[in-house]
Design a binder for these strands. Sequence first.
DNA 1: CGGCCGTTTGAAATTGTTCAATGTACGTGG
DNA 2: CCACGTACATTGAACAATTTCAAACGGCCG
Lengths: 189, 189
Amino acid sequence: MGILISLPGNKKIFTKGEPSEYFYKVESGCIRTYSDLDGDRRRIYAFYFPGDHFGLEACEEHGISAETVTSSSVRRIEKKATMSRAARDVVGVNFLLHIATTELQRSRNHNLLLRKGAHERLVEFFREIQKRNQSQSEVDLPMPRSDMADYLGLTVETVSRALTRLKNTSTISMLTHRRVSLRDPIVLN
Amino acid sequence: MGILISLPGNKKIFTKGEPSEYFYKVESGCIRTYSDLDGDRRRIYAFYFPGDHFGLEACEEHGISAETVTSSSVRRIEKKATMSRAARDVVGVNFLLHIATTELQRSRNHNLLLRKGAHERLVEFFREIQKRNQSQSEVDLPMPRSDMADYLGLTVETVSRALTRLKNTSTISMLTHRRVSLRDPIVLN
DNA sequence: CGGCCGTTTGAAATTGTTCAATGTACGTGG
DNA sequence: CCACGTACATTGAACAATTTCAAACGGCCG
C-alpha cells in the first residue's frame, strides 16, 4: 500500500500550504513536523519514528511542514483512496481515526510537557523516545540540540545546561553527544 | 441525531478512564477539557463553544476529562453508530475525520501559544474566543481567571498582571471582570 | 592542519513564580 | 435592603527559572 520513498537527511517532504494529497508512514529514520514562525526559530511539533504515521489532515492543504531529520525512507499513502476504502469498511474507518487520534494524544502530551521545568522536559523527552524505539536504557538521539530545543520550547543553551545538570546528578549519562543512557527509575533531584 | 442534555455549571460530563461510548456537540454554554495532575493544579486542554464537537477518541476509554464551565446544553452522539455510518458513506468519513483533525489543529495552535510570552498568550486567547463566537470587538469570558491560567500555562497572578498591563497600554479594556473589549488591530507594546 | 558547525559554559538581564496581603463582586440570610 | 461571608481578582516584594549575549570548546571533513 503506497510507494516507498528514500530520502537523505534534512530533506523536505511537504510544506505548509501544499495540497495534502498524501500522508505517510515512516519505514526507517526520523521525521520532524514544524512551523517557521515570524523570523524567529521554528517550532517543532513532533518527531516520527518507524511505524508512525504523519501528515494526515482533513483539510485540502497541509497546515504544517515535514522533513527528514536523518536519512529516512517513508511510505507515501494516498489520502483519497484510503478515505474511500474507509467508506466501505469499518476497519478502514478505524484505521484513519486511529491515526488521527493517536496524533491528537501525542499533541496533548506535548502540551503537558511544555508546562514543566526544563529538566523534566528533557527527561520526559528521553523517556518518550525510549518507549517509541522499544529500546533498553540506551537512547539514541537522531536530532541536534537545536531540534530538541525547538520541540521542548527551550533555547539550545537551556537544553545544554539541563543536560549537564542531569549528568552531574547522574540521572543520565552521555555516551556520545547523540546517545544517552537513562537511570531507571528516573528520580529528579 | 443524539439526545440533548442540559447541565448546570461545573458539572462533569466524562472523566478520564471512563469508556468513551459517546462524543458531544455543544449547543449552548461553554465546556472545558482537562487533566488533574499530581496534586498540582489542573491543566486545561481546550474550551468548547456552541457548534464545537468534543470527546471523540479512537480509544475505548477517555484519556481526558470534560466538564461544563457555565450552564450548558450538549448533544450526546453515539460513537459506534457514527463510525458504522461512516463505513457506508464518504460524507460520514469526512465528518469524523474533520472533527478529529480540527481538534488536532487546535491542539497545535495551543502548543504554539504555550511558547510565547504572557501578554501574547492573553491576547491570542482573546482573539481566539472572539473568532469562535463571531462577535465584534467585545469578548465575553465565561471562565474564571484560574481557568485562563490553567489553559495558558501561567499562574493566576501572572494572568491578572498581564491583564492590567494590557489595560494600561490600552490594548484592551475591561468592561467587567468577565468582559473585555479588544483594540483593533492589536499591537503589543 | 584549519575551518566550521554544533555544543557547552558564563554572567547579566528578563520573565514568571511564590508567598502574603488586600480588594472586589455577588448571593444569602437577617 | 443591608451586612456578611465566600469565592474570585488584584497587587507587592522577594525569589527562581529561563533567556540573552558573548565567548570558548569539540569533533569532523576537506
